[in-house]
Design a protein around this nucleic acid. Structure first.
Lengths: 148, 148
DNA sequence: AACATTATTGGAATAGTTCCAATTCTCACT
DNA sequence: AGTGAGAATTGGAACTATTCCAATAATGTT
């Protein structure tokens, strides 16, 4: 079940963006919050169907778009992979572990965010910044030195 | 025509990765170098066809994969957009201008690259780092000046 | 020249996402 | 509570991007 607080946040955020709070959107949001991984639309669809078997994939896309639009979730994408969705609203990067397939959130310190913005020419306005790593997490000793 | 130097680099890089230098791969590489934008596979296909009308889209994908594999080009991707290809081998970020649709390269200073790596836990090994911005370049205030 | 390996081809198949028209729901206003 | 306008949902078709496949062609090696 969604807590009062979360529910309020959801409704609030949606209406702030001129969108309605609907049962479908609530369940989609709930499902993304419940398991803190980075599901694809298809995975969200599967999880939502457990509670709401009649929901359609098109509606899941619609709900995800709505949640992105009102700023409650973010889209994450890796090369030639389907879009994934992430409810972590703190500034963070993503590490895509190619060995396990998992995606890990990596916090970005505020000063680094500022530094990132600073590399842009002054007339560029960034609405969003995306930092992602690809590699593997479990290679403790045998790391081949690799310089360019 | 491809210059000796470029051709040598291409052949060298390919063979280093256990791949062959073929006419198709040469033309694909040449086309990507010629216009320094960030074409999709489909766009590369269209440009290559001018010189090599019989090439197939599957081959373009194959060639692009080969060039990525040997490190001569990089894949760039934005949310729900087809993969794009970039021959800039310097460390750089991408700015996706949503007003014009253009993608601009933004250099990343060496110390910033180091800083980025430093936010990863010590047992994470990054094979690649991807930094991208989304926004618009034309400043929000009235800006009659027009630079490129 | 013959062979093994690798590349190319066209087309079919798949995956991810969007679109559409019909229906249902919700909210604001009586 | 009833009604109408606008928004959301639905299923399925359409579309786009990419991969797969089996047959053919090209290449480098002996």
């Amino acid at each position: 079940m969604i807590s009062e607080t979360q529910n309020t946040t959801l409704t609030q955020r949606l209406t702030d963006s001129g969108l309605r709070s609907t049962p479908h959107r609530e369940v989609v949001y709930q499902v993304i919050l419940a398991k803190r991984d980075h599901p694809t639309a298809e995975e969200v669809f599967d999880r939502v169907k457990v509670q709401m078997p009649t929901i359609s994939l098109a509606t899941v896309y619609n709900c995800l778009d709505a949640l992105v639009q009102c700023g409650l979730i973010k889209q994450v994408n890796f090369v030639r992979e389907p879009t994934r969705y992430c409810p972590n609203l703190h500034e963070h990067a993503h590490f895509h572990d190619e060995t396990t397939g998992e995606i890990h959130d990596i916090g970005i310190p505020a000063d680094l965010m500022a530094r990132l913005r600073s590399i842009l020419p002054s007339d560029y306005t960034a609405l969003s910044i995306d930092l992602s790593f690809r590699g593997s997490a479990r290679s403790p000793s045998t790391q081949p030195d690799h310089h360019d």
